[in-house]
Amino acid sequence: MTARTTLLDREVAQAMSALSAAAKKGLGDPALAELVMIRASQINHCAFCLDMHLTIARKSGVSEKQLDLLEAWEEAGDVFDERERAALALTEAVTVLTDGFVPDEVYERAAARFTDAELAHLTGLVAVINGWNRVMVSRRIPPGGYAP
């Protein structure tokens, strides 16, 4: 598969990158941020973003076991702690939006484990990675173009 176009407006890319950086910084947990971005990218089938964020996750100290079991995090026992599980549940709910809303129990679970500010940054991070996924998938950008 070849890219449809590699053109992306520089101002758009800079704005999305700034939102991503602000959300990661406000969340304050680089490893968790990468787990969230990888999980959304798995759901959205974004090979470019998976390639990039798996590389960053390894550099951020995310364990290979977590990366191996991320797609099945709900069944992975104690591989993920409660905070990570709440963030992943929220990530899936915001990414899929099957019923048009994030279920109250998913939001409340996350709200119990994150401050209001952290929750705002987590939600922003999920929103921006979904945006990046859509930008990359719609243009069919293949993996391998990320240079750390």
Rank of each mutant, 00 (worst) to 15 (best):
E74F: 00
M16G: 09
C46Q: 08
T55E: 06
L97Y: 02
T91D: 01
V36I: 07
A93I: 05
T6W: 13
T55L: 03
K25I: 09
K24G: 01
A47M: 05
R113Y: 11
G100D: 01
D99R: 07
R113H: 08
I129W: 10
G77H: 07
R58F: 00
L69S: 14
G61F: 00
W73H: 11
D9S: 05
D99G: 12
R134S: 05
R140T: 14
F101H: 10
Y107C: 02
A23K: 03
A15N: 03
H121I: 04
A21R: 13
R140Y: 03
V12I: 13
A15W: 04
N44H: 02
N133R: 15
L70G: 03
A21I: 00
R4S: 04
E105N: 12
V102H: 12
C46G: 03
E75L: 13
H45E: 13
T5G: 14
H53C: 05
E105R: 15
E84G: 12
G145C: 13
H45C: 09
L97V: 01
A89I: 10
S17W: 12
D78P: 14
G26Y: 10
L27Y: 07
L88F: 09
G61Y: 00
I43M: 03
G26R: 06
L32F: 13
E74N: 10
V106T: 05
A117Y: 15
R134C: 14
A93L: 06
A110L: 08
L122Q: 01
S63R: 02
A47C: 11
L70Q: 03
A40F: 02
E74D: 09
D81H: 08
M1N: 13
A31N: 05
D99M: 07
V94E: 11
R134M: 07
A111E: 09
A117K: 11
S17P: 01
R10D: 09
R140F: 09
